[in-house]
């Protein structure tokens, strides 16, 4: 089942002096449960593509359909709500809320969706257990290592059971051991929860784990390789 369809997607940035075609006619489909990496050199359009898929930016041309819903047809307030219910985000620099504990960070999105207290607590414990941080539920981000913070960010991204998770360079700030642990956790969650993961990355270790690798160059797809 297709969770994401991208049709003839273009993004052009017009500054006063130059015109940048960051995404140039991309067509892509993602099935449920995919574990895909988007790779390419800096400036190839990876982050722009992820921002467009996540509804953080608007395409100049083309369509993005999430479970058949065309993001371009949604108002900006509707897109925010759509993101809340359908898309999980993992950022390069974790971006946890520093004043909340690990548990509260995970719970935050469920709170925005007005889940009841009991369900929130159960899901938070379940996810923190899945990322191996159940005992750090009351720790603030400042008391966690970078790897642990990113694991909390993954748990947060999965909290509301989204259609897919977009991860922008999730391992860029992690050492090799933390990267290994994080990838194993994400892979197992991907298999257990059947949630699609789409990464943008430079990291060869992420590429190695991915079951589909899409290579971009100058905003165009250079290759789209699926592995078993």
């Amino acid at each position: 089942m297709k969770v994401l369809e991208i049709k003839n997607l273009h993004k052009i940035y017009n500054t006063t002096q130059i015109r940048v075609h960051a995404v140039n006619g991309i067509d892509l489909d993602f099935e449920e449960g995919e574990f895909a990496a988007i790779v390419g050199p800096s400036g190839s359009g990876k982050t722009t593509l992820l921002n467009l898929i996540g509804g953080l930016d608007k395409p100049t041309e083309g369509e993005i359909l999430v479970n058949g819903v065309n993001l371009s047809t949604l108002k900006s307030s509707e897109i925010i709500d759509f993101r809340l219910r359908n898309i999980g985000f993992v950022f390069q620099s974790y971006n946890l809320i520093p004043v909340l504990t690990a548990g509260e960070n995970v719970e935050f999105i469920m709170g925005l969706q007005k889940w009841d207290r009991k369900k929130r607590d159960e899901r938070t414990r379940e996810l923190l257990k899945a990322v191996g941080l159940e005992e750090r539920i009351h720790s603030r981000p400042s008391k966690l290592s970078g790897g642990q913070q990113q694991r909390v960010a993954v748990a947060r991204a999965l909290a509301s059971k989204p259609q897919f998770v977009l991860a922008d360079e999730p391992t860029a700030n992690l050492d090799s051991k933390s990267t290994e642990t994080l990838l194993e956790i994400m892979e197992s969650l991907n298999r257990e929860e059947r949630i699609t993961f789409i990464f943008s990355t430079h990291d060869a270790r992420v590429v190695k784990k991915a079951r589909r690798v899409i290579t971009l160059e100058d905003g165009k797809i250079l290759s789209d390789e699926t592995r078993n």
């Binding site: 307030s77 925010i80 809340l84 999980g88 971006n95 520093p98 925005l112």
Partner: peptide, 16 residues
């Protein structure tokens, strides 16, 4: 600024 951007990204609407 960055945190507010993150909150908007993960689905915190303008009203909130």
């Amino acid at each position: 600024t960055r945190e507010l951007g993150m909150l908007a990204a993960i689905g915190m609407n303008k009203k909130r």
